[in-house]
Structure formats: structure tokens, C-alpha cells
């Protein structure tokens, strides 16, 4: 773990993506932070989207699961991963993400099973912790293209468009 991860890259595990859609609460609060800022990237592999779509479909119906996947596909940054690896962990490590949101407390120890061993440090947190600690003003300054003070959110979290 010698390289610095990108602090503006976030991965949400399938349980958090499904909870954002179906439960709301802290999962939605956390992902709203991501959706509000065009410069905060949500990373996901195809395998992570497959897993999420399967999960949502089994809890609701295929139409909603398919539309949810299409929305995620439009907004995510796609990363490749070894097919046999844990989708969320692999998405995070393959994409040099700094944050992985998950309700699975055992995920930290699961990285030993990855095909490619992690080179970067990764913060694995439940969404409520991420939502509480998310500090867009200080994060804004870490982006090379940004100068000046944090101007506030630049996207509507409900339709994905800039105002």
C-alpha cells in the first residue's frame, strides 16, 4: 500500500446501491454527496452492476432493476476487474478509489482473496460514516483543475444534470 488513492473516487457496494434505491436514509445521503458533485466519481465494474441488478430484481422487479442499472451505467466510471474477484473491492482497487461504502463489516479482511493485491490504501466505511465525514470543501482543493474556494454543489442529485 504505497500509492495514494484518488480521494474523489468512490465505490459503493451492491448493498449500498440497492439501499440507496429501496430504503433511502444514510445510503441515499452518502450517494447524494457523490451525485451533487460532477468531480466526485462513482466507480463500478460491470460485475458490480450485474450483482446490483440481480439484487434489486430479486427484491422488486426486473423493470425497476434494469432502469436502476441504466442510470448507474450512465453515471459511473467503468473499471475492469478480474471476473472472480469481489465486485466492489475489485472496483475500488482497480480504479484507485479512496472510498468504499459497504454495510459488510468483513470486507476489510476480504482483500486477501483478490487476484491482484491492493497497492493503494482504501477506506471502507458504512455510508453513514462517509456521509458524516464527507467534506466537499477540502476535497475540492485536491482536484488539480480546481482553483479558488469550493463553489458548492454543481449537480442536481435527482436528475444528474448541472443547474
Amino acid at each position: 500500500m504505497t500509492e495514494n488513492p484518488n480521494p474523489t473516487r468512490v465505490v459503493a457496494d451492491a448493498d449500498v446501491l440497492a439501499a440507496d434505491l429501496l430504503v433511502g436514509g444514510e445510503a441515499r445521503d452518502a450517494l447524494d454527496h457523490v451525485r451533487r458533485h460532477s468531480w466526485v466519481e462513482l466507480l463500478a465494474s460491470d460485475e458490480l452492476l450485474d450483482e446490483t441488478e440481480r439484487l434489486v430484481a430479486s427484491l422488486t422487479d426486473a423493470d425497476l432493476a434494469g432502469d436502476h442499472r441504466a442510470r448507474l451505467e450512465a453515471e459511473r466510471v467503468r473499471v475492469e476487474q478480474p471476473a472472480e474477484d469481489h465486485p466492489a473491492l475489485a472496483s475500488a482497487y482497480q480504479g484507485d478509489a479512496a472510498h468504499l461504502l459497504s454495510y459488510d463489516e468483513r470486507l476489510g479482511s476480504a482483500k486477501a482473496g483478490l487476484t491482484l493485491q491492493p497497492r493503494v490504501s482504501l477506506s471502507i466505511r458504512p455510508p453513514d460514516a462517509f456521509a458524516t465525514l464527507f467534506d466537499p470543501a477540502s476535497l475540492y482543493k485536491t482536484v488539480d483543475e480546481h482553483s479558488g474556494e469550493y463553489p458548492g454543489p454543481d449537480r442536481d442529485p435527482r436528475d444528474g444534470k448541472s443547474p
Partner: peptide, 18 residues
Amino acid sequence: MTNWADLFDRAESADVDL
């Protein structure tokens, strides 16, 4: 493309907890 507001509206009828 279905926006987030529509997706959340449709998902409200699903009685699913964490």
C-alpha cells in the same frame, strides 16, 4: 433515461429494509 427522482418514487412501493 429514468432520473433518480422517478426511480426513488417507483421504489417506494417496495417494502424492503436493510
